[in-house]
Design a protein around this nucleic acid. Structure first.
Length: 398
RNA sequence: GCGUCGAUCGGAUAGCGGCUAUUCCAGGAGACUGUAACUCUCCCGCCAUCAGGCAUCGUGGGUUCGAGUCCCUCUCGGCGCA
């Protein structure tokens, strides 16, 4: 993998990530295909809509169908019939969503509230069940029970690298710990330091495999604390990763601060990915601060739940006003895959629980977000990024 | 006509003498950012200063400390026999 920066507009930048399976022109949005499928959208449609790459998940594919099977199949590209670039996430986010975030209403951008919960360093089924969680973290790694069949497994940084080698993505992430936004400062520091150690172990494990042509990205953590973020970026930036991810969760207001501090000491000539962020305003902020790529489930999840992006903000097609709305989702995006359909038809599909509704809107939402980031790239090349940002946001958030 | 069974929120249901009448669907309003998510939450008789208050199980009576639950009347409907 190679990265070339081609344009600069303030701190925002445009460039090209070259992989064995093709180029990614950045800034770019990478659709999420957790279980080797972008939910509800055919691979050829994902391509036609304009996706340059997809992002799959180590945890999910390890559990089902198993990384060995995918290796036997010839790797993820062959398995899912996607011949473009593929990125795999390490499973670190699942440590959060199945551990600290389990059975709580904490999400990636959740409200911040203080609690005193600490994560025990012991692990077996009884401890897991006693804590009502599916994952427990210790210094060496994470023990977790499968959400599918309850079997106990263990991930370490080395194991995550091994699995991701079997999956064979062009780019993969080092195993990290994604903390809850409501964890206290001391825990954020502890988790960040653990993530740093895991990053070193991941890097070492990866470089030992001389046959691998895969690129490895390290993940900056530190929660919503600027000092931790800066420390994390300094530490990770000094390691020889091929690129970097900005991970974790933070309240919406803190995203800008976490980005500024988290990107501060990363090398300019390596790509930066902002993990799990896909709201337009947040992506504008990311690009403005020098982020090159994003991935996010929002486009497809919202779509399956009936919400479609429009240039005037999201609309929930299940709501009563759309029952007899004969307009298309977004008349100002005539090339959207959803253009041939009226809001009334889509509203009907959702009410009738027909899967086609979610499929069409998934395509539309992906098209909307992909195009938005493409337009950001175009604006950077013309030196008009901030103008484009203002123009879009003035209408979208009006 | 006789007998019998039944009538509970828009629909379907639970409820067999004891707090606030159950659940599902439909309807309404929200949520969703490295996907345990085609999911989840709340509302769905009336009033409400959001604490609560007042109603209500086809109708009208009755028994009882207490009735959707038991008894009688009527109305409507299903079934059976004439």
């Amino acid at each position: 993998m190679k990265f070339k920066k081609t344009h600069q507009d303030g701190v925002a930048r445009a460039g090209i990530i070259e992989t064995a399976h093709g180029d990614i022109h950045t800034p770019a949005f990478i659709p999420v295909g957790t279980k080797a499928t972008v939910k509800g959208v055919h691979p050829h449609e994902v391509k036609e809509i304009g996706a340059q790459a997809v992002l799959a998940n180590t945890y999910h594919l390890f559990l089902q169908p198993g990384d060995d099977l995918i290796k036997k199949h010839g790797g993820l590209h062959s398995f899912m019939n996607w011949n473009g670039p593929i990125i795999t996430d390490s499973g670190g986010f699942q440590v959060f969503s199945l551990g600290a975030g389990f059975d709580k209403s904490v999400s990636k951008m959740g409200e911040v509230k203080e609690t005193s919960g600490r994560t025990p360093a012991v692990f077996d089924e009884s401890v897991l069940s006693a804590h009502g969680k599916l994952a427990i973290i210790d210094e060496e790694g994470v023990s977790f029970t499968s959400h599918i069949d309850g079997v106990l497994y263990r991930f370490t940084p080395e194991r995550s690298v091994e699995i991701q080698h079997n999956l064979g993505a062009d780019i993969f992430f080092a195993f990290d710990e994604c903390t809850s936004p409501d964890a206290e400062y001391e825990y954020q520091r502890e988790a960040m330091e653990r993530t740093h150690k895991w990053a070193e172990r991941s890097l070492t494990a990866h470089r030992q495999n001389l046959d691998s042509k895969q690129a490895i990205f390290g993940i900056v953590q530190g929660g919503r604390h600027a000092d931790l973020r800066e420390e994390s970026s300094k530490k990770l930036g000094s390691m020889n990763f091929d690129g970097y991810g900005i991970g974790g969760s933070f309240s919406k207001e803190d995203l800008g601060i976490a980005l500024a501090a988290g990107l501060k000491h990363l090398p300019e000539d390596k790509p930066r990915h902002l993990l799990g962020i896909g709201e337009p305003a947040d992506m504008f902020e990311g690009v403005a601060q020098g982020i090159d790529t994003f991935d996010c489930v929002a486009a497809t999840r919202l779509a399956r739940n009936g919400t479609a992006y429009t240039l005037d903000g999201p609309i929930d097609l299940r709501k009563s006003p759309f029952k007899e709305d004969m307009n298309t989702i977004e008349k100002d995006l005539p090339d959207s895959p959803a253009t041939p359909y009226t809001r009334a038809y889509l509203a009907h599909l959702f009410r009738a629980k027909e899967m086609l509704g979610g499929m069409i809107v998934s395509q539309h939402n992906l098209y909307f977000i992909l195009r938005l980031v493409d337009d950001m790239r175009g604006a950077i090349k013309e030196g008009k990024f901030e103008e484009f940002r203002k123009e879009f946001c003035d209408r979208y958030y009006a």
